[in-house]
Simulated scan of single mutants.
Amino acid sequence: MRVEVVVNIASGSVGRDAPVEAEAILAAHGADGRVHAPGEGELDACLRDVIDARPDLVLILAGDGTARAAAELAGPEGPPIAPLPGGTMNMLPHALYGVVPWPEAMARCLAGGQARMISGGEINGRLFFVAAILGSPALWAGAREAARAGRFDLTLLHARRALRRAFSGRLRYVLDGRPKGKAEALSLLCPLVSAALDADDQALEAAALDPASALDIFRLGVNTVTGNWRDDPSVVVGRCRTGKAWAGGRIPALLDGEMVRFEDMVSIRFRPKAFRAWVPPEGPAA
């Protein structure tokens, strides 16, 4: 099997020794492969070149944004992608392989497996494969990343900005032609991770979050920790294949952990065939 490995040493939990360690794992499994460690500004071109070469398997050791970009570039017809946990949240790797270190996930992928078609969602042409959040709660991602980097000055700045946006302009949305709704945030979960959907379901799980006060936010946070967020009175849950959402200004969003900003109106679509993931013999451990 011809294998290509792309390592982003600048990512959250990769490290400068990762390319050498990846080469050792390839050798231990007798894989015919190459390890690429692109420099600053070279990552996007490297991903495209590797996927265009159409190897039997592409392993990506990087953060959430790079994993999502590689899967989007490969699409349903490209080579299978194995996103290894090299970032901070590692949403897609954890959904596919469980919470394990990247060398273990890489070794499991090289020990065998098969390509499995993964569904996903699309917002204004941008794909996601785990979950998306639209609305002001997405702004807290900046505070989270600043705190992890030890930049508490930036943490406070992002937190104040997120608080100013909270309750300042709710989203309006329409899903699958149902009546219009209004919410502080709209969360979209893919079948890969949704506890309410089977892996083969042809829809996204949509949750409209509309806390009316700080007390509601606290209660929703407690319910999220205990796993009962779907039963919270400020949450409306349903399924969605197509939809749209709009607001009075630009819409902040998180796509598989990556912060993006959309214009004031977005379209939403379920993608039944988004990309092929490489799944070890024991299958995904969501």
Rank of each mutant, 00 (worst) to 15 (best):
A196M: 10
S234N: 09
V174K: 12
L197T: 05
A195P: 02
V266K: 09
D231G: 07
L175T: 06
E205A: 11
P179D: 14
R241M: 05
D216G: 14
P179N: 04
L204C: 11
G227P: 02
D201I: 05
A196T: 11
A195Y: 04
R239P: 01
S267K: 08
M259H: 11
L186G: 00
A185L: 10
E184C: 05
L197D: 09
D176S: 05
N228R: 15
F167H: 12
V193Q: 06
Y173S: 01
F167Y: 12
V193Y: 05
A207T: 09
E258R: 09
P233S: 05
S168T: 08
S234I: 02
L189F: 14
R172S: 15
L209C: 11
P179F: 13
G169K: 03
V236H: 09
G249L: 02
D231N: 08
C240P: 01
D256M: 12
G177C: 05
A208N: 10
D256L: 10
A203G: 05
R230Q: 14
A245M: 12
D200G: 12
V237G: 03
G257D: 03
I217Y: 03
V237I: 10
A196C: 02
R219A: 13
A203Y: 06
A166I: 01
A247G: 15
E258I: 08
R178T: 05
S213N: 06
I217N: 02
D200N: 13
D210K: 07
V236P: 00
R170F: 06
G248Q: 08
A245W: 00
P191Q: 03
G248C: 04
G238M: 05
P252L: 04
D232P: 01
L171F: 14
L192N: 06
D210L: 02
L255I: 07
R241I: 04
R178V: 01
A208S: 10
A166H: 13
L204M: 11
S267I: 02
R230I: 07
T242H: 14
M265P: 01
L189E: 13
T242Y: 08
E205Q: 15
V235Y: 12
L192C: 12
V237K: 05
L171C: 04
G227N: 07
R250H: 10
R165Q: 15
